[in-house]
């Protein structure tokens, strides 16, 4: 059973179409929802939670229909909003305990889970101080904790790295990855930065202008391209000439030489050329794509 499945989901605001007939299936694991600002990422999450209604179409989360089974759905889902949503005059502990109770946990369980969860997201003594004095990084952790405190089956994280510095970003991403690998909770995480999601996601859904651009596993995105990347000790120009003389199609990319891969025999040929000319092999590997490249290609194709 897919964690999330939407069926021709459409959301129109006066003058703007946020989602246009979006049909996607999201399974277990960490799924990245990628798109530019205004692509409809937050709108999709809000519709899935029942915070806002869809204009047409339907969706199911964990098998619960968003229109008719909102309560059951929301008791098993965690939500980390994009924007600031924390009251400044209460402590993280008080807030998370309260919100755990609002998710249906009895008081004693709420206390225990809140303490556990705050520790898991990396908040210690400071959790007794009012949230108003927290740094952005600490606030993001509190937001994450309240989304996890009731042990949901899936969490929706809307731009969890927003406003964080590079170190904080890395920590947050590692935390997001652990939500699935260590906690066993599926994750739908949005970002407008592809590089981030590439590192932590199993699957990526790319939407643009409210429509689905592409949905597939990260492995598919970053599959091997039909090129070999070669780095040698010798001058790249010398090596380039030698390889071309051997009948290979070669282009140069800085220090790297990119050899068109015709088949397994290409590896042998490259090896022989390098050995014969004493070029000194440093590195020989199939070149991988980054999602960003695919995204750029597709985005420009759509733009046209």
């Amino acid at each position: 059973m897919p964690v999330i499945s939407t069926e021709r989901l459409t959301k129109r605001y006066p003058g703007v179409t946020a989602l246009e007939s979006l049909s996607i299936d999201v399974g277990d694991g960490v799924t990245g929802l990628v798109g530019a600002n205004g692509a409809g990422k937050s709108t999709l999450i809000k519709i899935l939670l029942g915070l806002t209604g869809a204009t047409s179409g339907g969706a199911r989360v964990l098998g619960h229909d968003i229109d008719t089974e909102g309560l059951a759905l929301r008791s098993r889902v965690g939500y980390m909003p994009e924007h600031d949503c924390l009251p400044g005059d209460v402590s993280a502990t008080e807030l998370v305990v309260h919100l755990a109770r609002m998710s249906g946990l009895p008081t004693s369980a709420a206390r225990e889970r809140a303490a556990d969860t705050l520790r898991h997201v990396g908040l210690y003594e400071e959790r007794y101080r009012p949230i108003g004095g927290y740094s952005t990084g600490m606030k993001q952790r509190v937001k994450l904790a309240q989304a996890l405190v009731h042990d949901p089956d899936v969490v929706f994280l809307d731009e969890p790295t927003n406003g964080l510095d590079p170190a904080g970003r890395d920590e947050m991403l590692a935390l997001v990855r652990r939500i699935y690998t260590d906690f066993g909770i599926s994750v739908l995480v949005t970002s407008h930065l592809l590089g981030e999601l590439e590192r932590i996601c199993d699957n990526v859904v790319i939407i643009d202008g409210g429509t689905l651009l592409r949905s597939s596993s990260v492995a598919d995105f970053t599959r091997s391209s039909a090129q070999l990347a070669l780095e040698v000790v010798a001058e790249p120009a010398t090596a380039l000439a030698a390889l071309r003389a051997a009948g290979l199609e070669v282009t140069r990319d800085g220090l790297l030489l990119l050899v068109e891969l015709a088949g397994d025999e290409t590896y042998d040929l490259v090896r022989d050329v390098v050995a014969d000319h004493g070029l000194g092999l440093v590195r020989l590997e199939p070149r991988r794509h980054h999602i960003a490249e695919v995204f750029d290609e597709e985005a420009t194709r759509v733009a046209r």
């Binding site: 915070l51 309560l71 929301r74 008791s75 949503c85 924390l86 009251p87």
Partner: peptide, 17 residues
């Protein structure tokens, strides 16, 4: 306060209407 701090989504994303 819930309006000022935009805390309502935290409630409405939970099992109450």
């Amino acid at each position: 306060l819930d309006l000022r701090f935009h805390s309502l989504p935290l409630y409405l994303a939970r099992p109450l209407e």
